[in-house]
Design a protein around this nucleic acid. Structure first.
Lengths: 332, 332
DNA sequence: TCAATATAGTAAAACGTTTTACTTAGATAA
DNA sequence: TTATCTAAGTAAAACGTTTTACTATATTGA
C-alpha cells in the first residue's frame, strides 16, 4: 500500500488540508507544524500522487514534445535529442515533466482532449498542415522550435542571418576580402537566411561580392564536393568560404586537401554547426555554433510563461549563435 | 469547459457507468447502446481525462525513460534518440505514454513515489550505483537497455558477440584468411564482446589468428589511425579488418587511402554501426548493423509484459545484429 | 407456472489530492 | 467588558474517472 496524504495527516495529528498546505507552501500554517509535517513526510517517504494532485489542480504539470519519430532520420536531424534535453532541463526546473509524442494528428488531438499535457512544444520538422491547423483552432498552448512563417504561431529559432554575419565579420577581421558561400538548396530556409546575413555583412565590410561565389547544392557530399572544386579551381578563387552545413564543410576540406590548397593558408573555412561531422574536418574548423540545447530551454521557458499568464502571449524568440575559433581561419 | 463523461451520459440518456464500459470495451452493454454512445462521444469530441482515469485505475499508463540528459554527449551517444523512438513506438501502440527523465537519484525516486510512471526504462549509460540500488530495493518495474552485469536487473541488449561472428563469417565467405580487429579500450565491454565473437568465429572458420592483429585503441581518430597504419605497414599485413566503431573504420579507410592500399582489393573492411560516420567512409562500408530502434521496442514490450503479469518476470533479452553488405568487402 | 439464469444497465463508493468556506482560540482595541 | 481582528487550522466539496455490488427485465427450462 502506497502512503497517502491521510497517513501523513494521521501521523502528524493534523487534517489533510494542513498537510496539503505544507506541501504547496501555502500560508496559514505555523512554523512548528510545517516542520513536523515535513519531517513525517520524509520519514514515511511520502510524495503526493501526481495524478490525484493533477486532477484536483486541473493541470498535468506536463508538456508534450512533438516530433516526427516514426520517420526520424539521424543524419538530417542530428540535433533533435539535444533540443529535447534543453526542454526537459527547463521544464524539470519548474516541476514540469516532459512527454514524448509522435507527430500524428490523432495522437496530438488525443493529448489535447484528454488533457494529458498542458501545452505542446513542436519540433519544426513535425509541423504539418493538419497539426498546424489543430494548434491554431483549438488554441492549445504551444510553441514551435524552428521555422513556421505563420504569425499566429509562436516559435523559437536561432538567428541564422546573424550567424551568416558573424562568419563574414570574423573572416573580414582575418583580412579576407573575397568570400564565398556554399549552401543547401535554393528552397532551404535556413541556408537562405544564413546567406542573407552573409551578403549583408559582406557588403557592409567591403568584401568582394560575386554571383559565382554563391553556390547552392543539394546538401550531399557529392554536390558539396562539386561546388568546392568549382570554387577552388576557378581563376578568381575566393580567399575564404562559408559552408552552411557540416557535411558541406567536410566535402570542401577534402577537396582542398586533394588540390593541395592549404586551409587556412590558401583558403579559409568556416562551417555552421559542430555536429556530427566537425571532428573529422581537417584542420579543426572555425565554426558558427547554434546552441540547440538553449533553444530547447528557451522554448520551454516561453511556454511555461504563457501558461502562467495567458493574457500576455509574448512574441516569438530568437537565440544567438556564437563563434568558435578553430584552425581553419587565421589573421593574415 | 471541457466535456466530461457526465455530458456524454446525459446526452445519451444513460449512466456514466455505461459510458465508462463503452470506453473500456467492457461487457454488459448492447450493440445499439454502444454505437449510440460512441457516436455521441465523437460528436462531442470527448476523450477521457487521463488523470482522472489514471487515478481511478491506479495506473498512469506511462513509462519513464531514464538517461543522462544533463551531460549528454552526441558524439559518444549518437543512438540515444533512436532508442527512445523505438520505445515510444511500442508504448504508444499499447496506449502508454513516454516520459523523459534525467538520471538523478532524486528525480527517479520522486517518480517512483509519486507513481507518475508505472515503470522505468533505463539507458545503460545512466545506470549509476545509487539508481541501480533504488531499482533493486524498491522493486519498481524496470528494464535496462545496455550492459548491467547484475542478475537482479533485467536488460535488453544486442548480441555483440554474434556481431563479431557475423563479420568474420562474411569475410571468411569472401575468401579472407588473415583477419584483424581494431577495437576500443581493453576495458570496453562492447568492444570486448565483439572481439570474443570475432575470435571464436575466426577459429571455427580456420582463419589465421595473431596477437599482433588485435588492436586496442582509445576510440579516437588519432589512435584509430595509428592502429591502422601499424596493421597496414606490417610485413604480415592481414587481408581483412573489422573495426568496432564507425570512427575507427573511418580512420582506417583514410589511412589505407593514404598508403595507396585499395579497399577492398588490398584489404577488406567491415565496421560496426551505420551512424554517424558511415556515409563518409570510402568506399561505402560493409557493416554490422545494430537496430537500436528495435532494442527500444523490445525493451518497452518486455516491460509492459512484466507489468501485466508480474509473476512471470522474464529473463533478459538479446536482439540480433544484421549484415549490410557495402563495397568495402567482396568475394575473391 | 414458477424458479433459475442471462442480459443490460445503474447507484454509489473509491481513487488521493486541492481548495473553498468555515471554526476556534487568542490577541487587540475601545 | 465586549466587539473585532488575526492566526492556525479544519470539514467537506470538488476534480472525472473506474469498479463493485446491485437491480430490473426478459428468457429459459422443467
Amino acid at each position: 500500500m502506497p502512503v497517502t496524504i491521510k497517513d501523513v495527516a494521521r501521523e502528524a495529528g493534523v487534517s489533510i488540508s494542513t498537510v496539503s498546505r505544507v506541501i504547496n507552501d501555502m500560508p496559514g500554517i505555523s512554523e512548528a507544524t510545517t516542520l513536523r509535517v515535513k519531517e513525517i513526510m520524509r520519514r514515511l517517504e511520502y510524495a503526493p500522487n501526481s495524478r490525484a494532485a493533477g486532477l484536483a489542480r486541473k493541470s498535468a504539470r506536463c508538456i508534450a514534445f512533438l516530433a516526427k519519430l516514426e520517420e526520424f532520420e539521424p543524419y538530417t536531424n542530428p540535433h533533435l535529442f539535444d533540443i529535447m534535453c534543453g526542454v526537459q532541463e527547463a521544464l524539470s526546473k519548474k516541476g514540469y515533466s516532459l512527454m514524448l509524442l509522435d507527430a500524428t494528428i490523432t495522437d496530438v488531438e488525443q493529448i489535447m482532449l484528454s488533457r494529458a499535457a498542458d501545452g505542446l512544444i513542436v519540433h519544426g520538422g513535425a509541423l504539418t498542415k493538419p497539426i498546424h491547423q489543430l494548434l491554431v483552432t483549438r488554441k492549445f498552448p504551444h510553441i514551435v522550435i524552428g521555422h513556421p512563417s505563420d504569425t499566429r504561431i509562436n516559435w523559437v529559432d536561432t538567428d541564422n542571418a546573424l550567424g551568416g554575419r558573424i562568419a563574414v565579420e570574423h573572416l573580414s577581421g582575418c583580412g579576407c576580402r573575397d568570400v564565398a558561400f556554399i549552401g543547401a538548396l535554393e528552397t532551404d530556409d535556413i541556408s537562405n537566411e544564413r546567406l542573407a546575413g552573409f551578403c549583408a555583412a559582406a557588403e557592409e565590410n567591403g568584401c568582394e561580392y560575386r554571383e559565382s561565389w554563391i553556390k547552392h547544392t543539394d546538401g550531399t557530399l557529392q554536390s558539396g564536393r562539386a561546388a568546392a572544386l568549382e570554387l577552388l579551381t576557378a581563376p578568381d578563387r575566393p580567399d575564404a568560404v562559408v559552408c552552411s552545413s557540416n557535411l558541406l564543410a567536410f566535402a570542401f576540406a577534402e577537396a582542398a586537401h586533394e588540390l593541395g590548397v592549404s586551409i587556412p593558408d590558401g583558403v579559409q573555412l568556416i562551417t555552421f554547426d559542430r555536429y556530427p561531422y566537425s571532428p573529422l574536418i581537417v584542420p579543426e574548423p572555425t565554426l558558427v555554433q547554434i546552441d540547440v540545447r538553449d533553444m530547447g530551454r528557451v522554448a520551454a521557458k516561453q511556454l511555461l510563461q504563457e501558461l502562467k499568464k495567458p493574457e500576455l502571449r509574448v512574441q516569438s524568440f530568437t537565440t544567438l549563435p556564437s563563434l568558435i575559433v578553430g584552425k581553419s581561419t587565421r589573421e593574415i
